[in-house]
Simulated scan of single mutants.
Amino acid sequence: MSSRERPAGTGRLLPGVAWALLLLGLWLWGKEITGGAGGVSAPTGGDVASVGRPFGVPLPPAHAPLKPVAPTRLDVPSLGITAPVVPRGLDSTGAPDPPPYETPHTVGWFGTGARPGADGAALFVGHVDTESEPAVFYGLSSTRPGERVDVTRADGSVAEFTVDDVRVFTRHEFDAAQAYGRRQPGRAELRLITCGGTFDREAGAYTANVVVSAYLTGSR
């Protein structure tokens, strides 16, 4: 289905129960939730096959967390993404609010959560499309482990992250702890989240979320 055939609201993330689980995940950011051995990508929870994630990709060691500084720009070179970042709060349903549809190429950062590069898991959300065009995270599901994500911060520093996991969580099997919980204690991590699966007209939402996980591997 082309984006112009989709009704309004197709860029929203999972509603209802899934958002309640997301809030649980935000609480779990500070908990010690692991996702397998560090340094090598390996099968974990969620539907990894649907995005073609390769196994056994060697990954660099983690960099020590940086001081907490707010983000201003997000770059994913492999996808050609260069987008401004704006802090977002919670919407009327109690969910982290993505940027308005009027700015589809802007990324939202959950501003009361972890700052990217600091200890914890920083959460970024973006639309996959609008009624008429692809949005900032349209190609996010094609991200692969080993690829780089750069976050420019308000002090001029750049936190360099390496993707270690790409998952698709369906609406009915959404696991907030696996999607948003910190994978390894003492590590600076990043989550990039957008819609995935197919659009369910009856529910008025996509059937899944794409969750790209990355961890800090350098700074400049």
Rank of each mutant, 00 (worst) to 15 (best):
S50D: 07
R187W: 08
E147H: 14
D155P: 04
R73V: 11
T198R: 14
L66M: 13
D129V: 04
A118E: 10
S219L: 05
W19L: 00
G45P: 02
R167H: 05
R167V: 04
V76G: 02
P7I: 10
V212W: 01
G108V: 02
D175F: 04
T34V: 08
V211K: 01
R191E: 01
P65S: 06
R191P: 01
A37F: 06
P96S: 10
G46N: 10
R220G: 09
A114I: 04
S132A: 15
R4H: 00
P54D: 06
F169N: 02
L74N: 11
Y206W: 09
I81W: 04
V128Y: 05
H127E: 03
L28T: 07
L140S: 02
S78K: 13
A121L: 15
T82A: 12
S142A: 14
S132V: 10
A135S: 10
T198D: 05
F161V: 09
S78L: 03
A121S: 13
G139M: 09
A179K: 01
P61N: 11
G39N: 08
K67M: 09
H105L: 12
A159T: 10
G197S: 07
D150G: 13
P84L: 09
R12Q: 00
Q184M: 07
S2G: 14
G139H: 14
T34P: 06
W19A: 14
L59S: 13
Y215A: 10
G9M: 12
G196V: 03
S219W: 02
R153I: 00
D150I: 06
G126E: 06
L140H: 03
E102P: 15
L14Q: 01
H127V: 08
R201C: 05
S219K: 11
A118L: 12
S50A: 15
V76D: 02
T93A: 15
L90I: 05
S50H: 07
P77Y: 07
H105R: 14
S41H: 08
F199I: 14
T207K: 10
